[in-house]
Simulated assay, not measured.
Amino acid sequence: MRRKPIYVEIDINTDMDTLWHYTQRPELHEQWDLRFSEIRYLPREKDDDKQHFLYRTRIGFGLNIAGTGVTKGGVRTAEGERFSSLSFSSEQIISLIKQGRGYWKYTPHDNGVTFVTQYDYETRFGLLGKCFDYVLFRPLFGMATAWSFDVLRIWLEKGIQPALSMQRALVHYLSVLMISLLWIYQGLVPKVLFPEAGELAIMQEISLFHGWESELLWCLGIAEISIGLLTILWHRKRWIYMPQVILLTLLAVVALIGTPELLKQPFNPLTLSGSMIAFCLLARLSNRELPQAKRCIRKRRRI
């Protein structure tokens, strides 16, 4: 079980001083980095070129992971690069990370700055901790780092505050989740698994598909399941939502024209399609400038 350091690289269209400012000031850093909820610098001793700090990360259920760290920045090369080193540790027994170290590197180029981090850490809980880190924690921690780097890029390039980016992402992913679950549920449960519960009767009352209602209902169910899965797969493509809005409108109109009595039911085509249309519009509107971890390079380039 070989442990690989976490590596993240991204190009940001900004100048060196601005990027340095937004990454070295704790009150700015904690806004865009998912890994930290709070960063606080400690008073620096005289003639000490190292900056000690405290960090805290909320993990939910009222729990926090707190620790200490030391950073040293400002190292420059002849090529104009800057480096900032970091070491960190936590004494909390609930912290999987015991101690670690890494660096930030800033490389200027014609279109901005390449921002790079690489870091590694030691874990607690023996072999169990190493397995959990390898299978789940390290991949998620690396993804959170990459996602945070893109949040920073959007902030500097587009002027969109990290809090707004995170709210927009939350609205988008919740909307996509609801759209997909509703499509899959409506296709699987009442059409494929239990058509006799009511969907088949509705299809028969429409009287347009005499003798083929069961087969058509099954095909419709598979189609709805497919739409749900494709929505998850292509959720970042804005064009995928308007065809769904049109389709949902047509399905509701056909069902209500064929069986107007459906409006009397508490959960009818109008309320269901209306809710799904609203989620589609929310997902489409929130799809602009979404942070993406995949915009970052995750493997160190070979020289």
Rank of each mutant, 00 (worst) to 15 (best):
I227T: 04
W147D: 09
E215C: 01
P5T: 12
L272I: 13
L256N: 11
V8Y: 03
Y119H: 13
R3K: 15
Y7R: 03
G129L: 04
A66T: 15
L247D: 02
L174R: 06
Q118A: 11
W155N: 05
D33Y: 05
R58P: 00
F132C: 04
L54G: 02
M242N: 03
G221A: 04
M166R: 15
I184R: 00
P269N: 04
T71G: 05
T114A: 06
S180T: 10
G80Y: 02
R76H: 11
T57E: 07
A293S: 14
A293Y: 05
Y106P: 03
L229M: 13
C219V: 11
S180E: 01
F137Y: 15
L285V: 09
Y119F: 15
T231V: 11
E45F: 02
R3W: 12
P26L: 01
P162Y: 02
M143C: 01
W155K: 07
L128E: 00
E205G: 04
L128G: 06
S226R: 04
K4T: 14
L208P: 02
I240D: 02
S84F: 09
T71V: 14
L170N: 13
L136T: 12
D17A: 12
S180I: 06
H172V: 10
L282C: 14
Y55I: 07
E215S: 05
A78D: 14
D120V: 05
G62Q: 12
Y22C: 09
V135F: 10
K294N: 09
L256E: 06
I94L: 14
S180K: 02
K191D: 00
T271I: 07
L281C: 13
I222L: 15
L217P: 03
W147V: 04
L230T: 11
V189L: 00
H109Y: 05
Q31C: 10
K46L: 10
R2Y: 12
A197W: 15
L86A: 13
V253K: 01
L34T: 08
H172K: 13
R298S: 14
T271F: 00
L181T: 00
R301P: 12
M242V: 13
P162H: 03
H52K: 14
L250Q: 08
F115N: 04
L270Q: 05
E157N: 02
F83H: 12
P108W: 00
I59T: 13
G112L: 06
A163R: 03
Q118M: 14
S84A: 11
Q92T: 10
I59S: 09
V113C: 03
R153H: 06
R302S: 10
R35N: 09
E81F: 01
L128C: 08
L127D: 06
D120Y: 07
S37R: 08
S84E: 14
